[in-house]
C-alpha cells in the first residue's frame, strides 16, 4: 500500500506524537505518558476502524498545520471543540475527512478544550522508546514533539470514504465537580483544610502542560511537615507545595516527589480535567476508593460501547444517499 507524505507547515508547542503510552516503567523514573484525554484519542482511532492505541498526533492549544505532499489519507480529528480548516472548508473537531495531495489541514484552538487528536488511516511513522511511540515531553523520548518544517510519513495510507463526516461525541461524561479520593497524605492537612479544598473553586492557571496543572485558589495550609520522604506520584496526584499551591500531576508527571498529596483524581475524570483551560474554574468532590472503582468500571463500559458504536462504518456517500432515498421513499409512498 502507498505511503502518504506530510510536512508540518506549523506546529505550536507541545504538539506531540502519542500512542496508548508506556506503563510499567515508573520504577525507572518514566511516567506512562500517552494521551492527555484518552477517550478522545481512542475515539479518533475508532472512527477510522484503527486498532486501539495506534499512534496519533496530540494537538495543543498552539495548533498545527499539515500539508499533504504525497498520497491521500483519511484522518479523524477528535477532542475538545477545536477549529478544523481543510482547504477552504472550516469545520470543528470530531470529524473524519480525507487529506489529498496538495491539501492543507489546520487544527487550532476553538471554543473549548485543550487537546485534540489527529489519527490516520495508516501508520504514523515515529520513533519508538521502551516499546511505545508516546512522547515523554520533558525528555523528548518517544515519537517526539512536532517541529515546524519536519516531514511525517503515514505508511500504508488509505482513504476511507465510508467513514467520512461527523463523529458522534461522547455524551456520558459527568459534568459536575472533578472526583477525587482524598490522600494519601490527607493526614498532613487539618480536617478543615481538606474540607476547604473540597468546597472551594480553583482556577486553572497557565502553568499547565503535559506534566501537570497548577491551580489558583485558597491557600492550602499544611499541618506540620512541609515535605515527606520522596514517594511515588501517579497521574492525578494533587500535590501541595510549601507555598500552599495545589498542582494536579498529569501524563508526563515526575514519578516521585516529596510534596504531600491532599487528594488523587479518579482515573475516569482525568480526561475531562485535562480538557479544561487556563482561566476555567473547577471544583473537586470527594468519593470513596470503592465508589471510584464502581464509577470507573461503569464509565469504561460506556466508553467501550461508544467506541464500538462509532467504529461502525457509515457506508459510502452512494450508500448513504441510497439509504436516505429509501427512507424518503417509505415516507412518501
Amino acid at each position: 500500500m502507498p505511503n502518504a507524505a506530510l510536512s508540518v507547515a506549523f506546529a505550536g508547542p507541545l504538539v506531540t506524537v502519542q500512542d496508548a503510552g508506556r506503563p510499567g516503567n515508573m520504577r525507572f523514573g518514566v511516567s506512562a505518558s500517552g494521551p492527555m484525554d484518552r477517550l478522545a484519542f481512542d475515539a479518533a482511532n475508532a472512527a477510522l476502524g484503527n486498532a486501539t492505541g495506534q499512534s496519533a498526533i496530540e494537538v495543543s492549544l498552539g495548533g498545527v498545520i499539515l500539508q499533504c505532499r504525497e498520497g491521500d489519507v483519511t484522518v479523524a480529528i477528535t477532542g475538545g471543540d477545536f477549529v478544523v480548516a481543510h482547504g477552504a472548508a472550516e469545520t470543528r473537531s470530531w470529524t473524519v475527512l480525507t487529506l489529498r495531495k496538495g491539501e492543507r489541514l489546520a487544527v487550532r484552538a476553538g471554543k473549548s478544550g485543550s487537546w485534540a487528536y489527529i489519527a490516520f488511516a495508516g501508520t504514523l511513522e515515529a520513533a519508538e522508546w521502551l516499546g511505545s511511540r508516546a512522547t515523554h515531553s520533558t525528555s523528548g523520548f518517544g515519537g517526539g514533539a512536532l517541529q515546524t518544517g519536519q516531514s511525517l510519513t503515514v505508511s500504508d495510507a488509505t482513504t476511507r470514504e465510508d467513514r467520512l463526516g461527523d463523529i458522534e461525541r461522547p455524551d456520558f461524561l459527568p459534568t459536575g465537580p472533578i472526583r477525587v479520593v482524598t490522600g494519601p497524605q490527607d493526614q498532613h492537612f487539618a480536617p478543615e483544610t481538606v474540607a476547604q479544598f473540597l468546597s472551594s473553586a480553583f482556577k486553572i492557571t497557565d502553568a499547565y502542560d503535559r506534566m501537570g496543572m497548577r491551580l489558583n485558589g485558597p491557600r492550602i495550609e499544611l499541618d506540620g511537615a512541609l515535605s515527606i520522604p520522596s514517594e511515588p506520584i501517579v497521574r492525578g496526584s494533587v500535590q501541595v507545595s510549601g507555598d500552599g499551591v495545589p498542582t494536579v500531576l498529569l501524563a508526563d508527571h515526575q514519578t516521585t516527589g516529596g510534596y504531600p498529596k491532599i487528594a488523587t483524581v479518579v482515573s475516569s475524570d482525568i480526561g475531562r480535567l485535562a480538557q479544561t483551560r487556563a482561566g476555567d474554574t473547577i471544583q473537586f468532590t470527594s468519593t470513596s476508593s470503592q465508589q471510584a472503582i464502581t464509577e470507573t468500571r461503569e464509565c469504561a463500559k460506556r466508553a467501550a460501547d461508544y467506541l464500538t458504536h462509532i467504529a461502525v462504518p457509515r457506508g459510502t456517500l452512494e450508500q448513504r444517499l441510497m439509504r436516505e432515498n429509501l427512507i424518503h421513499g417509505c415516507i412518501y409512498d
Partner: peptide
C-alpha cells in the same frame, strides 16, 4: 497489577481497576 514503584519508605502498587480492586 500494572506495576510497582519502590521509593524511600514506601512501595506503590498500581493496578487496573477494571480487573481488580484495593
Amino acid at each position: 497489577m500494572i506495576e510497582t514503584v519502590p521509593a524511600l519508605v514506601n512501595l506503590l502498587v498500581s493496578f487496573d481497576p477494571i480487573l481488580t480492586d484495593h
